[in-house]
Design a protein around this nucleic acid. Sequence first.
DNA 1: TTGGAACTCATACTAAAGTACCAAAAGTGT
DNA 2: ACACTTTTGGTACTTTAGTATGAGTTCCAA
Lengths: 138, 138
Amino acid sequence: MKKTVFVFSSLIIALLVLFKLSEYSYRSGNLNIELLISIIAVLFFVIGVYINKKGLTKDGSKPIPIDLKKLEDLGISKREYEVLEQVIKGLSNREIGEKLHLSESTIKTHVSNLLVKLDVKRRTQAIQKAKELKIITE
Amino acid sequence: MKKTVFVFSSLIIALLVLFKLSEYSYRSGNLNIELLISIIAVLFFVIGVYINKKGLTKDGSKPIPIDLKKLEDLGISKREYEVLEQVIKGLSNREIGEKLHLSESTIKTHVSNLLVKLDVKRRTQAIQKAKELKIITE
DNA sequence: TTGGAACTCATACTAAAGTACCAAAAGTGT
DNA sequence: ACACTTTTGGTACTTTAGTATGAGTTCCAA
């Protein structure tokens, strides 16, 4: 997003100011050099954190992208989920059947059940819904 | 995108070096302090980045969200793009027609042309393709 | 072992989706 | 004005999707 660009630009400007200040401090001798180092350190620390603020879970115990709980709640079975994955890939019922070594009829049954469980009318909507529910790895 | 972050990081580092050089030429002698500042800055930057080892995955930071150039290359017209947006939302041809005040026939024509231009067979594949090409705002 | 999911597959049907033409109106650039 | 693209819409057709229903199988827990 352009937000990232904005943030970086602001940081660069801040950096500029900081360096100007440091330059000034050399001449006037007003600024404490330790304070300057601290500011720079904190600043760059913030930059680093900001870059990947997306994953602030430092416990590292949640690397699971798929929401298995929602699958449970919706009552989607293992086989149905496999079919859903292929539907999202854009395969036809026949192609899914060939891939999973099942008949087209079976796929139709699974898809039909999936549509009910996802509360949608078409497979294209199922794709959207699955992404909303974070049921799949995008 | 990772690339944007990388570019900006490089820019910051380049700025750092530039200022260091300018100060060096203007007030040579106290190289140790400036070097120390630089090292600390980079160090804390790295610390900040790697404190969340989750990494910089999907950032989606592009100045332009939609890749208009690809739309040009594919020869997708304005109307076709509007239809594509609705297809991705999971609407049926009839629903799209009602939404855009067009007949279902017209939508079918647009969709059919879209499938050819996107080089896919089904609308479900068109959804995938559009996301691959970053033609849409996800 | 038995009842209930889950899985499989079939038939028959309706509803969308998609293809293959055609054609006319409207805008665009030369 | 003329050629060109876009947009719109139609008919007729084939294919895919989806529904409804039934039924046989397997697997697991009570």
